[in-house]
Amino acid sequence: MSIGNSPEDERPFEDGRSSDGHEEEARPSVGRTLQQARIAAGLTVDDVSSATRVRIAIVHAIEADDFTPCGGDVYARGHIRTLARAVHIDPAPLLARYDDDHGGRPAPTPAAPLFEAERIRPERRGPNWTAAMVAAIVAVVGFVGFTAFKGGDSDSDAASQVTQGATPSAGKPAAPKPSNTTATPKSDPSDSAIAAAPQDKVTVQVSAVDGRSWISAKDHNGRMLFDGLLKKGESKTFQDSSKVNLILGDAGVIQLYVNGKKIEDDFQPGAVERLTYTKGDPEVG
C-alpha cells in the first residue's frame, strides 16, 4: 500500500461542501460516487488500479470528475464501467449520469455506403477454357501412362511367383485387442492438487465458488504471483518456499485450501481480506 494513499485520507468533504466551499448538487457526481464506493469497500487507488489495469493518474482524474485523460467519451464510459465493477456498484446509473453531463451517449460509427462496396468489388471474368482443356489432356495422358506402368509391374510379379511355385496365402485377420472395461475413477482436481502439496513449501489454493472476485497473490519477496479477476468456478494455486500473501476483493465467495487443509474462516460477502500463510498454516485444519 502506498504511503499517503489510504482510504481514510480520501474521505469526501463534510457538510455537503466541496473543497472551494460551494454547495454540491443533491445527487453526487460520477467521480464522487466512485470515490465514496471505493472508500466504503476499503480499497485504495493503488488497489483499484491493480485490479482494473487503469493507470493511477486516470483513476485520480475520474474521481475528480476530470475525464480528459481518458481520451474521449467511449474510453471514459469504459473506464467508468470498469471502476464501478471493481468497487462493487452498478455502473448503469453512473453511465446515464455521464451521458446527461456530456451531451448524451456517443453515436455509433455509420457503416460505409453500399455503393462504395459495389464500386470496389473486383470485376468478374469468364473462365479460361483453353487452359482448362490443356490441363485435362495432360491429366488423361498422365493417368494412362501410370496405369500402363503399374500393369506391367503386376504381370512380371505374377510370372515370378508361378516360376518359383509360390502360392499366395490369405492373410489372417488381426485379433482384436481386448478392451479394458474397467473405468478409471476421476479424482477431483482440487483434491489431487491439495494431495500433491509438498511439505517443505506453502501451497495455497483459491477457488471462486459462489461468485467472482478480484484477488492478488505475492510471494515472500513481494513478487506478484497473480493479480486479476477470478471468475465463478475458477481456481488458482500459489506456492512459495516460505510465505504467500493474499488480498481478496470479495472474500465471501472464496474457498481456501492451505497446505492441504480447508480454511473454515467465516468471510462475509463483499469483505476485503488481507491474509498471509506460511508452511506451518493452518495450525488447525
Rank of each mutant, 00 (worst) to 15 (best):
M1C: 08
G4H: 07
G4T: 13
E8A: 11
E8S: 10
P12E: 04
F13L: 15
D15R: 11
E24A: 06
L34H: 06
Q36E: 15
D46H: 12
S49W: 01
A61G: 02
I62M: 06
D66L: 02
F67K: 03
T68K: 08
P69L: 04
C70E: 11
A76L: 04
I80Y: 03
T82R: 03
H88V: 07
I89L: 00
A92N: 06
L95G: 06
A96E: 15
R105K: 10
P106A: 06
P106K: 01
T109A: 10
P110E: 13
P110N: 09
P110S: 09
L114D: 15
L114G: 09
E116I: 14
A117V: 09
I120P: 00
E123T: 14
G126R: 14
P127I: 07
P127H: 12
W129H: 14
V140W: 08
F143T: 14
F146Q: 13
A148E: 12
K150H: 10
G152N: 14
D153T: 04
D157E: 15
Q161F: 05
V162Q: 15
T163E: 15
G165T: 01
S169P: 00
A174H: 07
N180P: 02
A183R: 11
K186F: 08
S187R: 13
P189K: 09
P198Y: 00
D200Y: 08
D200T: 12
K201R: 14
T203H: 06
S207D: 12
V209G: 00
R212P: 03
R212V: 05
K218H: 09
D219Q: 02
M224S: 13
L225H: 04
G228T: 03
L230Y: 04
K231I: 07
G233Q: 08
S235L: 09
D240G: 03
A251D: 05
A251T: 06
V253Y: 10
V258S: 07
E264P: 02
P269Q: 07
K279R: 15
